[in-house]
Amino acid sequence: MTAAKEMLEGVGLHQDPSFLMALEAVLEVLPPSRSFTGFDPVEAAAPAASDFEVLEGLRRLCFGDEVDEPKQLSMLHEEAAQ
């Protein structure tokens, strides 16, 4: 993740509003992985769930202040709390 952060900073994407909006949008449509839901996604969605896991890790590491947690994760947290 550190290498990804350095690469994004090197090309200036870490401050690009279009990139940050795209990251936020992608995290809302990709299915969350097992590490966030507690269950495996259907087989066809597994690659996309892996992408979600990596991008959410990147968001937390690099963009936690600029990009909000995906709403689908917030809903999972709320559901688990009930």
Rank of each mutant, 00 (worst) to 15 (best):
T2Y: 01
A4R: 08
E6L: 14
L8S: 06
E9P: 01
E9I: 05
G10K: 10
G10Y: 01
G12A: 02
L13N: 02
Q15I: 08
Q15S: 13
D16C: 08
S18D: 13
S18F: 08
M21R: 15
M21F: 05
E24Y: 05
E24G: 10
V26K: 11
V26Y: 03
V26H: 00
L27F: 06
P31C: 08
P31Y: 06
P31E: 04
P32G: 03
S33D: 15
R34E: 15
S35V: 14
G38Q: 04
G38L: 05
D40Q: 12
D40N: 11
P41W: 10
P41H: 10
V42Q: 11
P47M: 08
A48G: 00
A48L: 15
A48N: 09
A49P: 05
A49F: 08
D51N: 12
D51R: 12
D51K: 11
V54I: 14
V54H: 10
V54G: 00
E56R: 02
G57C: 08
G57I: 07
L58C: 05
R59V: 01
D65S: 12
E66P: 00
E66M: 13
E69C: 09
K71A: 11
K71Q: 13
K71T: 09
Q72L: 09
Q72V: 07
S74G: 11
S74A: 14
S74Y: 00
M75V: 12
H77N: 06
E78K: 10
E78G: 00
E78L: 10
E79Y: 07
A80H: 01
Q82P: 01
Q82R: 12
Q82H: 03
